[in-house]
């Protein structure tokens, strides 16, 4: 099993590989572990791009 992923790393990967800009929740302390990202609902093409990019980088 892979080590737990950090929100900031996933944000960078989504941006670089998929051109998808989401927000790391690491800037919402206190009390939120650093493995959450916040994703807004966008235009259909943006939403499709997110689903494709997050599926692409998924590591079970």
């Amino acid at each position: 099993m892979s080590p737990p992923r950090k929100a900031d790393d996933v944000v960078t990967e989504l941006a670089q590989k998929g051109g998808v800009i989401v927000r790391s929740c690491a800037s919402f302390p206190p009390g939120l572990p650093d493995h959450y990202i916040r994703v807004s609902i966008g235009e259909p093409w943006e939403n499709e791009a997110f689903i494709a990019a997050i599926t692409d980088i998924y590591q079970p």
């Binding site: 941006a15 051109g19 998808v20 800009i21 790391s24 916040r38 966008g42 939403n47």
Partner: peptide, 20 residues
Amino acid sequence: RAAEIARAAGGHTRPARLAS
């Protein structure tokens, strides 16, 4: 920050803006 990363990476002239 992520927008800067996407720009720096290049190739994504029209990023999906799902951060705000």
